[in-house]
Design a protein around this nucleic acid. Structure first.
Length: 473
DNA sequence: TGAAATGTTGGGGCG
DNA sequence: ACGCCCCAACATTTC
């Protein structure tokens, strides 16, 4: 009678779960554990919606496992100590987990595995988080891709139904072992955290919330290609936090995208491939965590301008689309993808601030924060990364606003102070003359900030900044 | 998964 | 009728 332990991390579901599937297939007794990692939780502010989001998901996993005769052991501590302790207490032969590709996670798992080896056990890890991982997609020359489009073509060419098949859990669910009677789930307070406003965000949580969002999106998937760029429109899937914590599986999403004809589904699949791409980039090039993917851009001299950085973070740059987006980030813990590109461009190309500062702010605020996608997106916007946007391609915050929020509907959702100004000034309020300002009762510089920088000037400074490091040949 | 600068064209006003 | 200019509108190139 062999015993296994399934270690849940960023895969908080009980359907289509690789590690759980393999453990149940191979062992007569399967315990399940989730650890609130004190190494990760320690540095977080005491109010963090993600901890609450995870706890809601953990509660649902526990309930679902109990319904199948098992349950979830939930610990709070250092996995390097907790896992070996459980292995000893429960008499576990092997620990099963789904692979995590972030450098810190790789190091953690290596350490856990090292300690398990001395206890005559081991950590078995499985591909679950992505469709293709590590070296599964390489160029003909056997090197990792550094441009997205050829990567995507190779990805699509390699895709078979095998990658999209779910990992069923039910067939051997009888092997689930109930947790010790003493085990019970911690509260947020017991974890040392305060309640947040997560409930007021109306963000569906857990597996059930993810499936509800998924069903809703499937109804709209045909419109995705055209609607996804407009932040005032309900065009995207809103599944990113769920994909981040694995409350829904990537295979379910990719199978839906692949099996639906039309441009909408194809465009969405492309976005899912971007996710695989950035995971692979991080796995092949862990240096991008702290350095530019293209080393020559490490020579860039960014500006040290704390006041401008604060204005950006707090949404008071004087550019309405930027400010609305930054307030969405703080208020909702999420930002529309188009706006992630526009605000990242603004920080790096208009304010001249190092992309790493913006990356860190997004990492703190985003519920869906994922190191690979966040780093990849920021380096793309800063023109320092893999398949980055060319450095001379600089977003105009006003033009982007006119294109993607033409009526200013998104802007007004987060900047009610601009409600009274005429629609034609909503994208650039400072262009109102004194008479217009008086007429609508909004004085720019008092009721809403003047632009903190002039875009045309900032643009030419950025061109100079990049020209300065250009290699002469 | 841009935008600005520069070049070209063609219609219309006008002498 | 014709040439000239102005300037949108569109195309190309440059950053």
């Amino acid at each position: 009678m062999t015993t296994a332990l399934v270690w849940f991390r960023r895969d908080l579901r009980v359907q289509d779960h690789a590690a759980l599937h393999h453990a149940l297939n191979a062992h007569r007794r399967v315990h399940c554990v989730f650890i609130f990692d004190s190494n990760i939780l320690g540095p977080l502010p005491r109010r963090d919606r993600r901890v609450e989001f995870i706890l809601r998901a953990v509660e649902e996993v526990d309930a679902a496992l109990r319904a199948m005769g098992g349950g979830l052991i939930v610990c709070h501590g250092d996995p390097c100590e907790e896992i070996p302790r459980l292995v000893h207490e429960l008499g576990v032969e092997a620990v099963y987990a789904n692979r995590d590709y972030a450098p810190a996670a790789i190091a953690r798992d290596a350490e856990v595995n090292r300690r398990l080896a001395s206890a005559d056990s081991r950590l078995l890890d499985f591909k679950d988080q992505v469709i293709f991982e590590r070296n599964e997609i390489l160029t003909q020359g056997g090197t990792p891709f550094s441009v997205f489009t050829p990567y995507k073509n190779a990805w699509l060419k390699r895709l078979t139904s095998a990658e999209l098949n779910p990992y069923p859990v039910e067939p051997h669910a009888a092997n689930l072992a109930p947790p010790p009677a003493s085990a019970c789930l911690p509260t947020l307070a017991q974890l040392g955290f305060e309640t947040t406003d997560l409930a007021s965000l109306r963000l569906p949580t857990g597996m059930s919330g993810a499936q509800a969002l998924f069903r809703d999106f499937v109804e709209r998937i045909d419109d995705y290609a055209t609607a996804r760029d407009f932040p005032a429109v309900k065009g995207c899937s809103y599944l990113s936090p769920h994909l981040r914590f694995g409350t829904i599986s990537i295979r379910q999403l990719a199978a839906q995208a692949q099996g639906t004809p039309g441009r909408g589904a194809a465009t969405w699949l492309s976005e899912l491939i971007w996710r695989d791409f950035y995971h692979a980039v991080l796995w092949h090039h862990p240096r991008v965590v702290t350095h530019c993917f293209k080393p020559e851009f490490d020579a860039l001299c960014w500006d040290d301008v704390p006041d401008l950085f604060d204005a950006w973070r707090e949404g008071r740059t004087g550019y309405p689309l930027i400010d609305a987006a930054m307030r969405q980030l703080s208020q909702a813990g999420w930002m529309h993808n188009r706006l992630r590109m526009v605000t990242a461009s603004f920080l790096t190309k208009d304010l001249g601030i190092d992309w790493r500062l913006g990356e860190a702010w997004f990492a703190e605020k985003l519920l869906d924060f994922d190191l690979s996608a966040n780093n990849g997106g920021w380096q793309w916007a800063a023109s320092t990364g893999c398949d980055a946007q060319p450095w001379f391609r600089i977003f105009n915050p006003v033009t982007q606003s006119e294109k993607f929020d033409p009526a200013g509907r998104f802007i007004l959702r987060y900047l009610p102070e601009l409600k009274q100004i005429p629609q034609k000034f909503i994208h650039a309020p400072w262009t109102m003359g004194p008479a217009d300002q008086a007429a609508c009762g909004v004085r720019i510089g008092r009721d809403y900030p003047l632009p903190v920088v002039d875009h045309a000037q900032a643009r030419s400074r950025t061109l100079e900044r990049f020209k300065a490091i250009r290699v002469e040949r």
